[in-house]
Design a protein around this nucleic acid. Sequence first.
DNA 1: CGTCCACTTGACAGTCGTCAATAGGGGTGG
DNA 2: CCACCCCTATTGACGACTGTCAAGTGGACG
Lengths: 216, 216
Amino acid sequence: MKRFKIGELSVDSGTPLLSEGSSTPQVFTALSGMGLRYKTLETGERQVISFIMPGDFIGLQAAVMGEMQHSVEATTDMVLCVFDRSALWDLFKHEPQRAFDLTWVAAVEEHFLGETVASLGQRTGTERVAWALVRLYIHLSALDLRKGDSIPLPYRQQDLADALGLSLVHTNKILSSFRSKGLAVWKDSQLTVPSLEKLATIAALDPEREPIRPLI
Amino acid sequence: MKRFKIGELSVDSGTPLLSEGSSTPQVFTALSGMGLRYKTLETGERQVISFIMPGDFIGLQAAVMGEMQHSVEATTDMVLCVFDRSALWDLFKHEPQRAFDLTWVAAVEEHFLGETVASLGQRTGTERVAWALVRLYIHLSALDLRKGDSIPLPYRQQDLADALGLSLVHTNKILSSFRSKGLAVWKDSQLTVPSLEKLATIAALDPEREPIRPLI
DNA sequence: CGTCCACTTGACAGTCGTCAATAGGGGTGG
DNA sequence: CCACCCCTATTGACGACTGTCAAGTGGACG
C-alpha cells in the first residue's frame, strides 16, 4: 500500500474532508480521530450515514463513481493517510490482491449499511439507540480504544439523532432513561456501558454475530 | 464475461435464491424477472433492502465476504446468468477492467443504500412511498420496461411496506390517497404515474440527480 | 459578565402502528 | 359447476410512539 501513499494529513475538528457532489483527486484512510459521513436531503435535513473511526476507508465512491454522494467531516482532530485517486487504476492492474481487498471493503460497508436500513426501518427509537451504542462499543473495543467499560464517543446527541432518524429531543429522553436505568452513560465524550448484554438485549441484537470491520 | 459464465438458471416466482448465512458457490446476474433482497431481524421482522431488477448483480457479498448477510428471493419467474464464485479471483488477476467494474457496482449499490438510509431516517411515510415509486419508475424506465406512463411492479403492498419501514395498513392508506389524487395508481402489478414531476415533488426528490444503475 | 452552544425537561400534537372486520380473486376439492 | 379456503387489499377506530415548541440549565469562551 505504501507505494500509493502520498502522505499524511492532519486536520482539526470540524474540517470538511469531502463534500457531496465534489470529485476530489484524493482518497483517505483514517489513522486516528473520528468523523462523520452524512447526506443532506433536498429539504435540508441531515442524515448521518455512518461514524468514521480509525481504519475506515474514505472516498471510495468518488474514486470509482467519479463523484461523492455524501459529505465527510472530522468531528475531532484527525490524522489521515492520503492516496492518489488515479493510482487506484494501477492498483487494479498490478495488485489484484489489493484490489480485491478494496472490493471487500466496499462489500462490508454495504453490509453495515444494510444493517442500518434494517434498524431504521424496523426498530423503535429505544431499540435504535441501544443498537447504535452497542455497535459503537463493539467497534471501538475491536479497535482497542476501550478502557474498562468505557469508550470515547466524541459526538453530539444531535449527531446520533441524525444517524438514527430521531429528533434530538426524543434521543435525549431515551439516553436519559438509559442513564437512570444504569444501562449506558454518555457524558463528556465518553460512553460507559456497565453491561453490554443488557443493552444488546434491548437492541434485539446478538453481539456475537457482529462481523469484524476491515482494515487496509 | 462469457468466460466466467456457467449457464443460465430459470426459477419460478417465490423461489429463494440465496439465504442469509449461507455461502453458495455461485453468483448471479438477473436477466429477466424481478426479486427481493431482504434481511430478517432477530425479532422476526423483515426488512426489504432493495428490489431486484434485470441487470442487477446478486451475491457479491457472498463472493467477497464468504457469507450472505441477507436473503434473495424471486417474486416473479426469473432468468439468471450464473457465475462461479471461485472464478472471481481469476477476474481480479486477469481482467482488471472487469474487476474495477465490479467494485463500481459495489460502490453504486452502496450509494443507493445510502439513499435508502436517508429516506427511512428523514422522510415521512407519504414522502417515503412517493420516493420509492419515483425511484422504481425511473429505474424501470431506464431498463426500457416502461409502456406509456406505466411500469410493471410485481410486488405486494407488504413488500413495499417492509422496504420503507411502514406498516402494511399505513402504506395502503398512503397509496389510497395517491390514487384518489391521481398521483399514482398501483393495481394488478402495474404502476401508473400520470405525472412524475408531481410525485417527485412530494418525495422531495430531484429526479434529474438520480444516477444510472450499472450493467455488467 | 454576556453570549453561544449543547444538553434537559415538560406539554401538546400528529404521524403511524395495532386490532379488527370486510371485500375480492384464484385455486382446489367435492 | 359450485362451495370453500387462502391470500391480498381495503377501511375504520383507537392508542402509542415520536416530533415540535418552548423554556431553562450549565459550561466554555471572549
